[in-house]
Design a protein around this nucleic acid. Structure first.
Length: 482
DNA sequence: ATGTAC
């Protein structure tokens, strides 16, 4: 797409007007600096955003985040809100990794004190948290147990002694989205998920120990238990093969639904169905089941990681307890109420590679975050910084309570694999004092920092546009990847 | 993202 297509609204906001193409129902609103706009022009992500504007039932502009890149049908880094219940829901607007998300845990362990033990900690985390493609975890769930995970989400882990009620309170949707019904999850998806609870996966999924490097908002940092110079644990993963199969199943099933409901689409990958149709209802029930599987997966991983910390640091470090800061979803369709043209309206917010970023005072936020807004967790690319932000009143007003989710890819996986030597990259990161545990050197190369945008630029944009506020910057010291 | 093509 050409830069002249965009109308500049402010330093960090650009618009593709509705007049750009005759089938657009709404405009595209992109958050980007000049530099990030130019990066976004290099792939098909903005054409995809224009395609999304043709979906029936949109209530306002399709919003695009600065970490945008091309995805299946919808761009990764896109947000679209459709009227509930007559508007459509589209699996491609949520993504193959349903409820892919990030969890952050704080500690009072000082980096300087823990530094001699970090290599051992990296190995212990790698041993405790299975990672890699198709990797099985510590449990083989019977069908009735898997159904319970899909219905209960992270609460299932409380019953198993792997979670506390505080963990749930500090999880988006308290770790369980309503309306999940595993009867609409295929047997195939259930089979794939049955041994994957408590696993990290591959690709850009990771587990990381970071040091809190700089605090920008002391009040918010204090509410979250973040202290400069102390270690935190964060990880990024989702619903594994189960969610992937749910998305595949419904993308296929929706092909005929599109014809049945007479929906015109510029791209088959945008397949969708009205939320109040049987197809839409079944997908919602299955997608929510996969979302709960992912919440439970992150809860189990948190438990396994905590045990690894105890195993390595007990007796060496005075206090090693990890406290949940928050757990966010960045691939999800949620029914929420937003102010649309001055009136509250129930909508389905499709967030694909976009983080919910509720501002202060929103229902559903735990008491300690009511005044500061929802914690937003933005991991950078491997070996680079990550950010903790909070949602704002502006994000509620102009981005359906959403903000960015990461650095955003700029180089294809195949090109990164050609250009980057995994062994050299590992050595470079080790030289920077980052302990790496990598299941696959080819996988490591695909995630090289040069394959991603600069997360600091992305955060500068969302912060400058006002759709999130900076709380803390984190620096990695241990990275575990599949 | 993903038993990376039934």
């Amino acid at each position: 797409m050409l830069k002249k297509t965009f109308k500049k609204l402010s330093q960090y906001e650009w618009e593709i007007p509705k007049t750009y193409r005759s089938d657009m129902r709404v405009a595209v609103h992109l958050f980007a600096s000049e530099l990030l706009l130019e990066a976004a022009l290099d792939d098909l992500s903005l054409e995809q955003a224009v395609n999304v504007t043709t979906l029936p039932g949109l209530v306002g502009p399709v919003v695009v985040m600065p970490d945008v890149h091309q995805g299946y049908g919808f761009p990764i880094g896109g947000v679209a809100a459709t009227a509930f219940p007559h508007g459509v829901i589209s699996p491609g607007g949520i993504g193959y990794d349903i409820n892919c998300g990030v969890r952050l845990m704080s500690s009072s362990i000082e980096y300087t004190e823990a530094q001699p033990h970090l290599a051992q900690l990296a190995a212990a985390l790698n041993a405790a948290c299975p990672s890699g493609m198709g990797k099985a975890g510590p449990f083989k769930l019977k069908p009735s147990e898997l159904d319970a995970v899909c219905r209960l989400g992270a609460e299932w882990a409380v019953k198993q002694g792997m979670a506390t009620t505080e963990d749930l309170r500090r999880t988006e949707e308290t770790g369980c989205v309503d309306g999940a019904d595993p009867r609409w999850v295929s047997e195939h998806a259930k089979t794939r998920g049955s041994d994957q609870l408590g696993t990290l996966g591959s690709g850009n999924h990771f587990m990381e120990v970071d040091v809190v490097e700089q605090i920008f908002d002391p009040d918010a940092a204090q509410a979250m238990g973040l202290m400069e110079g102390c270690l935190v644990l964060q990880f990024h993963c989702g619903s594994r093969g189960l969610g992937h199969q749910v998305c595949s199943d419904y993308v296929q099933e929706f092909q005929s639904a599109v014809r049945r409901y007479g929906i015109q689409l510029p791209d088959r990958e945008l397949v969708c169905a009205p939320m109040d149709s049987p197809e839409g209802q079944h997908y919602l029930a299955a997608m929510r089941s996969a979302a709960n599987f992912a919440f439970c997966n992150r809860q189990v991983l948190a438990h396994l990681a905590q045990r690894a910390f105890e195993q390595v640091l007990a007796g060496k470090i005075r206090r090693f307890h990890l406290h949940q800061v928050y757990d966010v979803a960045h691939n999800m369709g949620k029914i929420e109420t937003h102010m649309i043209e001055g009136k509250p309206l129930k909508v389905c917010v499709h967030r694909k590679g976009a983080t919910r970023a509720f501002g202060p005072g929103q229902a559903g936020l735990p008491e300690e975050y009511q005044a500061i807004g929802q914690p937003v967790l933005v991991p950078g690319s491997m070996g680079t910084a990550s950010w903790v932000l909070v949602g704002t009143e502006t994000s509620m007003a102009i981005s359906y309570g959403s903000t960015c989710h990461g650095a955003g890819r700029v180089m294809s996986r195949s090109k990164a694999k050609r250009d980057v030597r995994g062994d050299r990259l590992r050595d470079e990161l080790e030289q920077q004092g980052i302990h790496i545990q990598a299941g696959s050197l080819a996988g490591l190369a695909e995630e090289a920092p040069q394959a991603y945008k600069d997360v600091d630029d992305v955060v500068e944009t969302v912060s400058g546009a006002g759709i999130a506020r900076k709380v803390a910057r984190l620096r990695p010291v241990v990275v575990v990847k599949g």
